[in-house]
């Protein structure tokens, strides 16, 4: 299948993009790398009348250090993030996650901002930015605002961005001295996560957990922080049995989705196994 007809705009600036968006707020979809939107349009699951292609906006394509934070422009690709020395050094979890998104073509074309704004429940990156307590910058007709990652994902394919807003930047605190890992289960190497787990932790010399964040994607409509797991481990000595029993809490009060890839029972089981394995992998470095 191929898409139906649509009007196409390629704004030359963020300002122009925002005004186009405001003018077509009911009919427009924003196109960046096209790795989520175009497949939907080809299947005619999405039939936007207007496409605003922001892919050429150089002002949104950057990765830079800003003090204790790293600022990532919404148009940085997964490959940019995965290969960035800055990110690998100061916030490796993001690179560890970006490098397992889709396949090489998807990572070369797909943008971090596009993937997050699309909010696919099986997208990898939401787990990482939740675990990192990132903030997301939204630009709209009335200016800019910051949205914490924990408030960004509302439900399947829905974020807290307003229809006339664009996601322009992801701001991640550097995690010097933290140990991190992202592990996922998927049918194929390039597949979506059936369950994906991001872990970011700091432990003392004698193995006591000083800080930990764990986030899970693929399991429900929206990625989430495994707060019960974190609470069970924070301040505790990180040994195998403590990690295993804490990991079991990931499914507490969670209702896993069912699809052709996994039943809820298996998904729940995988989440427990993968929380445990991800924490262990983070510790092992």
């Amino acid at each position: 299948m191929i898409p139906g007809a649509f009007d196409y705009h390629a704004p030359a600036s963020l300002e122009e993009a925002l005004s186009l968006l405001s003018a077509n707020v009911d009919d427009a979809k924003v196109l960046a790398g096209g790795q989520s939107l175009l497949p939907l349009m080809k299947l005619r699951l999405a039939k936007p009348e207007v496409i605003i292609d922001i892919g050429g906006l150089a002002e949104l394509n950057y990765i830079r250090e800003e003090g204790d934070h790293i600022a990532i422009g919404a148009l940085a690709t997964y490959t940019d993030v995965a290969e960035s020395d800055l990110i690998q050094n100061r916030c490796p979890l993001l690179a560890q996650t970006a490098v397992v998104v889709g396949d090489v073509q998807v990572r070369n074309r797909g943008t971090v901002g596009g993937g997050l704004a699309h909010a696919d429940p099986a997208e990898d990156l939401p787990a990482a930015i939740l675990a990192l307590d990132a903030e997301l910058k939204a630009a709209g007709p009335d200016g800019e605002r910051w949205i914490p990652a924990s408030e960004f994902f509302v439900t399947m394919l829905t974020t807290s961005l307003l229809p006339e807003e664009l996601l322009t930047e992801i701001r991640v605190p550097a995690r010097d001295g933290y140990k991190t890992s992202y592990q996922k289960v998927s049918r194929q190497a390039a597949g979506f996560a059936i369950v994906g787990v991001a872990a970011c932790l700091k432990e003392s010399a004698d193995g006591v957990c000083e800080d930990i964040s764990v986030a899970v994607t693929g399991m429900t409509d929206v990625a989430f922080r495994a707060e019960k797991v974190e609470a069970a481990l924070r301040g505790e000595k990180l040994d195998d049995s403590a990690i295993a029993s804490a990991a079991a809490l990931v499914t507490d009060g969670v209702d896993p989705i069912e699809d052709v890839n996994a039943t809820p029972a298996y998904r729940a089981h995988l989440a427990q196994v993968y929380v445990e394995r991800t924490i262990q992998a983070a510790r092992a470095g």
């Binding site: 194929q188 190497a189 390039a190 979506f192 890839n261």
Partner: peptide, 11 residues
């Protein structure tokens, strides 16, 4: 092909 579970070269 994804839902069908097609093996890629990696698998």
């Amino acid at each position: 092909l994804t839902d069908y579970g097609k093996c890629s070269t990696a698998e």
